[in-house]
Write a protein that binds this DNA or RNA. Structure first.
Length: 281
DNA sequence: CACCATGTTCCTTG
DNA sequence: CCAAGGAACATGGT
């Protein structure tokens, strides 16, 4: 699930549903999902705390809770396979549920098959993030400065969360296709017009994907069998539309939508990059 | 069995 | 000190 658009849609879904609700009980089923804090400290800080706000920063969910007139931040990251959802108290927990925050009538469930994600009270990871790509702070100037001294391929640099926050492996390829840039271009060689195209392409593809919903409709589609667990983006028109949503990602060998040339795949920094060899020359 | 997967961090090397 | 590359983390799907 987790790149900026998916997290954003999830945040918009959860925020109004959590507002002013109080955590009554906490179950930590797998302490590996707790980062930089002990179960005791986590439970002590959050039990009887009330949800005041929920925002997104990069791929992180940032909850602000209120307890004894103090604000406590709670950070969640979904890693590769993390999910966060509200479920009725009577519904059974999924196999890989790791942390359950019990509210009055529902549970906020964190589940994570691979356990690359987690929750923490430590905000330091947030502070190291680069600008929010959809905010005015993300300018050609800041992008240019972040890339100026790097010879690394631009595709790899886009995955660096200190350059710009929230882009992952899917949207890095998608943004470069829309900007018509070769993923292998050394970052410092990008011209000003190219950087403008890249910034604009990043903003367009992220905004469009937020509008569209989740990139992982099948994950949510399976929720029906889980009785009561629900997610965003599970409307029928979202089923099986991965192919329509992406211009290049996971489309190796299929015709470029713009020029019909077969899409290529190559490995950079141990991750797959997809691109059109003609449009992105 | 082999390889691949939406992410991040830590260690090593230059 | 910094940039860059690679392994590690853990599990499931094809």
């Amino acid at each position: 699930m987790p790149e900026l658009p998916e997290v954003e849609v999830l945040v918009r879904h959860l925020a109004p549903r959590l507002l002013n609700k109080t955590i009554r009980a906490i179950q930590i089923l797998d302490r590996r999902s707790l980062r930089q804090t002990t179960p005791a400290a986590f439970t002590e800080a959050l039990t009887q705390a009330r949800f005041q706000s929920l925002q997104r920063r990069g791929k992180h969910l940032v909850f602000t809770l209120r307890k004894h007139r103090h604000s406590t931040p709670l950070i969640a990251h979904l890693g590769m396979t993390g999910r966060l959802f509200l479920a009725g108290k009577q519904s059974s927990l999924p196999r890989h549920a790791t942390i359950v925050l019990g509210l009055a009538r529902e549970n906020l469930v964190f589940e994570d098959v691979r356990r690359f994600g987690g929750m923490t009270l430590d905000t330091s990871a947030i502070e190291r993030l680069g600008p929010e790509p959809l905010e005015p702070e993300f300018t050609v100037n800041t992008l240019s400065q972040a890339l100026a001294r790097s010879r690394q391929p631009i595709k790899i640099k886009l995955l660096d969360q200190s350059v710009v926050a929230g882009i992952g492996n899917i949207y890095a390829s998608e943004a470069l296709f829309r900007a018509r840039l070769d993923p292998c271009t050394p970052s410092q060689l990008l011209s000003l017009p190219e950087l403008q195209r890249l910034r604009s392409a990043i903003r367009r593809v992220l905004s469009q994907s937020i509008r569209f919903g989740s990139t992982m409709p099948l994950d949510f589609g399976g929720s029906a069998s889980r009785n009561g667990l629900f997610y965003y983006g599970q409307s029928p028109e979202h089923a099986g539309n991965r192919e329509e949503r992406f211009q290049v990602y996971d489309r190796e060998g299929k015709p470029c939508r713009r020029c019909k040339t077969p899409i290529c795949k190559k490995v950079q920094a141990a991750r797959s990059t997809y691109y059109c060899p003609r449009c992105q020359a």
